[in-house]
Design a binder for these strands. Structure first.
Lengths: 344, 344
DNA sequence: CTTACCGATGATAGCGATAACATATCCGGC
DNA sequence: GCCGGATATGTTATCGCTATCATCGGTAAG
């Protein structure tokens, strides 16, 4: 509705209004608005002018009802305030560029219940595909997704029983690699800092990897501080490292569920006059910007967040367009690597 | 579409399918799916069962075409990987809870051109209102928004010439306050670190506030390092402070366009063995989590990011529901305050 | 007992676009 | 001059849902 000078609101112009003004049929307007249709230059210009004069904006919801293509895909991430996931979102956006598909972003605050609600309200809008974070979902969410008949990509994880397709890595294996790398440098007394169990499944898997690797190396794997509701904050990381040193003062290296808690731990240790890594070594997970920039610079695991998003979106568009002959592989594993810096 | 056992895809069930199965008319199903309509308990239950058996999901795009209510509002923020803006998004989400409105989030990467595209593609989906960040938009974007006939809220700023309504604060005044507070503590030689001009208008306004306040105090206001494309990173903040100390070694306090660049500067100074604040004081802007947690803890300006989102969403819903008699005030100013910590 | 009204349901007609088919025009080649 | 095929445009029929009005018992007020 545009406000008319008298203050009342007039109806928004429709395609028919544009058509009438340009002296053509609505169908021709529709064609002129779409790439690659045959509309003569003169007509196209007249239509463009009419659109301009009326301030017409295409109503896509009407269009998609008719064409049965909504032109968007949904992506659900745990948090938008987390550069790892927002990098994934950027990867998705970039890969969608030029496909005519738009991204509809939602965030769950790490709650599978919120995820379920979000999935439901997104499916109501009929996305052409959906990208999820992680492999843990409510039963109802799984059912809804299976019945939706659209491609589903689970990311950031390697679920046992994927709904459809997967782009991710094993969080457990990544943490195992970190433990092994540090053990090879001579560290023996490892501690782990993470949130209380539940909610953050990727965090739980990292913890499980920590335990597995140490057990394999016959090193103690019981120095685990569970603190705060996942995802734990920087502040909580600081508090957790204090508890850890309280309880096991001879801990040599503290591995944290993410760089953010590791950063909190690192700063707290510095604040207490401890030398890092001499008095205590610290490592994180995720290779956030902060890890490369803090002092001392932090050892961490780099995972290809942007690439996860990019590949997920590519897989999704291929699945959407793909005929049955053009099969898309089910699982794509993305890489990770240990980035050794000054903190270990 | 649900995949049938033979691999072919069947059409997704529609409301009519549900109605037939439940032995009622489609209209009754529609009513049963809406709160507060008169449908008998027995009928409601039969419908619920039919929905369950068929795995039916309401098609909202069809519904909104008919009801002329899409049930969502759009919000456009510069970056999702910035806790200030994601706090605003969270404020919006929370305030929208229970209103039946959903949030459609988009991000511009600080580009007004991207913003224009985004606004256009969002308007095509007919949001019931739109929340923008900042007051700088392309002419075409302004025109589209004015003609859309929906409430528009500009946030995080106090534009001279608002499109519709505003929830924000003066970035310039906030920076002036910070300068004054530090000058009162005795600091005289101030430096400023920000991105090269353009793009980040809030950053430019902070810089302008910096200059204004120092001029008023008759202190030198020319120690300005412009470095990198806004928003500047932590790393760039570190590089910038090095240039600053190179050029004006006797600088007493470095003010940064955001906590992130301030953090980079802080860490770089520590890395070079400087004492903060004794050798150089540092302050940021935004009161990010990192400011309270780093060592030394950082002085900064706290702005009520969450409140901005909350109030913007409240204003928006009031404008959407509001009759003309129920006028909504045009401008809401949100507060800010200096948070003094160890770094100054 | 009649009137009025409310609650429960159905029938019908769009919402604003596009798919699919139909029609008209123009072109060059024979 | 006629024909096939491309280009340009129009007509008609939905897409899946909800607004609106109509219908029909039942029930309370007069």
């Amino acid at each position: 509705m545009t406000k008319t000078p008298d203050g009342k609101s007039a109806e928004a112009p429709t395609m028919n209004d544009v058509a009438r003004r340009a002296g053509v049929s609505a169908m021709t307007v529709s064609r002129a608005l779409k790439e690659g249709s045959h509309v003569s230059k003169a007509t196209r210009e007249r239509i463009a002018q009419a659109i301009n004069e009326l301030g017409y904006v295409l109503d896509q919801s009407a269009g998609s009802l008719s064409s049965r293509r909504t032109g968007f895909v949904a992506a659900i991430i745990p948090s938008i305030n987390n550069s790892n996931f927002s990098d994934t979102a950027r990867g998705i956006t970039d890969a969608l560029e030029g496909t005519g598909l738009q991204l509809l972003l939602g965030y769950t605050d790490y709650s599978v219940e919120r995820e379920e609600e979000l999935i439901e309200s997104m499916l109501r809008r009929r996305p052409e595909g959906i990208i999820l974070t992680g492999g843990a979902h409510t039963d109802r969410a799984r059912r809804m997704l299976q019945q939706a008949g659209i491609p589903v990509i689970e990311t950031w994880d390697t679920p046992q029983d994927p709904i459809d397709k997967v782009v991710g890595f094993s969080n457990g294996a990544a943490m195992e690699l970190l433990v092994e790398t540090l053990a090879a440098k001579g560290y023996q007394r490892f501690g782990y800092i993470g949130g209380t169990t539940g909610r953050d499944t990727r965090g739980s898997q990292r913890r499980a990897g920590f335990v597995r690797a140490l057990d394999r190396l016959s090193l103690p794997s019981d120095r685990i501080i569970s603190f705060g509701v996942p995802p734990i904050s920087m502040e909580q990381g600081g508090q957790a490292v204090v508890s850890m040193l309280d309880r096991w003062p001879d801990t040599q290296v503290a591995l944290c569920v993410s760089d953010l808690s590791a950063f909190g731990a690192l700063m707290e240790c510095r604040r207490r006059g401890m030398r890092v890594p001499e008095d205590i070594a610290i490592a994180g997970f995720g290779d956030y910007e902060i890890a490369a920039c803090c002092h001392p610079r932090m050892t961490t695991i780099n995972v290809d967040c942007y690439g996860i998003g990019r590949q997920a979106a590519l897989k999704l568009t291929r699945s959407i367009q793909g005929t049955s002959s053009d099969e898309v592989e089910q699982i794509t594993l993305t890489g990770f690597r240990v980035v050794e810096r000054e903190s270990t």
